[in-house]
Nucleic acid binder design. Structure first.
Lengths: 204, 204
DNA sequence: GTCTATATTTCGATAGAC
DNA sequence: GTCTATCGAAATATAGAC
């Protein structure tokens, strides 16, 4: 029952994937830095040295988990990129956040890892492999928000919309056990629409 | 110019306070776990052993920074507690978030520490000193959001409002260099009102 | 691909002089 | 209150047999 939860559409059960799954689990429980390779090996019933056959360094384990997250980011950014030059980016943003919400619901543990080990991920960026197009979803969102050709109010609303999604779906933890993730997601979608829609100022 | 930034209304310049300031700085740059006492000592131009005169363990440094944050939390919770039994908690929540916004603007580095070192703070809670009333602001907010006597929609909106505040004031980093923190804060206040206000459903 | 054994480094923490 | 010197523990990583 614990081994069986399928992730993505990946080769299941390979030792390499099992290492990544266990690592993700432990990193979320204790944090990346506080989790030793010894602990990962013990939970997998293998020795430390076995891990080094599959990954050269501990950091590489985190890097691979980062790539899983990066794939999700590409999906979102590709859709957004097509509409980049559109005059009104509001619709594109709403669609992006809709997809973002879906991804969080489907990959909560991966987003949790990113959120709870922010510092560990930062050193990944500052090492190799971050030559150019390897840019993070978060970094690209920041660039979006820094576009001064967009009125400040709209940019702050966009940042708040992202935060609202994370706050309801991630920050609240298991605060909504009386609701399914889809129910919560639907409420958040409505909130995003409220935050981003162009209101007609002519109303009272 | 770097030494002079005043924090709170505390005894400035005492070695103990300088340790805490430098530690806060380094913890935010590299993370708590990746920051060694050697580094803190070097930046302060003292030796490691000197730190141990002021703090028994490394964890105690983090604990004191936690207490700075905890004081801010008490201020918010005291105000909220008075209105706890009110029939309509909406107004209380708005006031709380207003104060929350002020605190973030005034103590961004402290909140950053809490956000970026979530795991390190967790072990603090699970050790001593967390007997009872030492409960975290975050923990109490979670209890609030878990109150099933409140409709789900309103609780999700509350969680999103908190997230919106954090997203605009913390997550966006320095994405709004063209605006003062107060300008951004004012926009966020309006967003919070929109998210929490009781809308008259009778419209359109 | 996994093991045993060990090298290497760094860290948190202490003892005791000044 | 700060220093020098050092200890013990734990972590990452490697060498080489099976």
């Amino acid at each position: 029952m614990t081994e069986q939860r399928a992730r993505g559409g990946r080769p299941r059960g390979s030792t390499r994937e099992r290492i990544l799954d266990v690592a993700l689990q432990l990193f979320n429980e204790q944090g990346y830095d506080k989790t030793s390779l010894r602990e990962i090996a013990e939970r997998l019933q293998v020795t430390k040295a076995a891990l080094y056959y599959h990954f050269e360094r501990k950091e590489d384990i985190l890097l691979q988990l980062h790539l899983r997250l990066h794939e999700l980011g590409r999906e979102v950014l590709d859709r957004l990129g097509n509409l980049d030059a559109a005059a009104d980016k509001t619709l594109a943003w709403m669609e992006m956040l809709d997809q973002f919400i879906d991804q969080i619901v489907a990959n909560r543990d991966l987003f949790l890892l990113h959120q709870r080990n922010h510092n560990a991920f930062e050193v990944l960026e500052h090492s190799e492999s971050h030559t150019a197009e390897h840019e993070d979803l978060e970094a690209q969102m920041r660039r979006l928000l820094a576009d001064t050709s967009i009125p400040l109010t709209r940019r702050v609303r966009m940042a708040s919309a992202i935060g609202a999604v994370l706050g309801a779906l991630m920050g609240a933890g298991e605060a909504f056990p009386d609701a399914t993730p889809e129910e919560v997601a639907e409420i958040v979608r409505e909130i995003v629409r409220e935050l981003l829609e162009q209101r007609e100022k002519a109303r009272v």
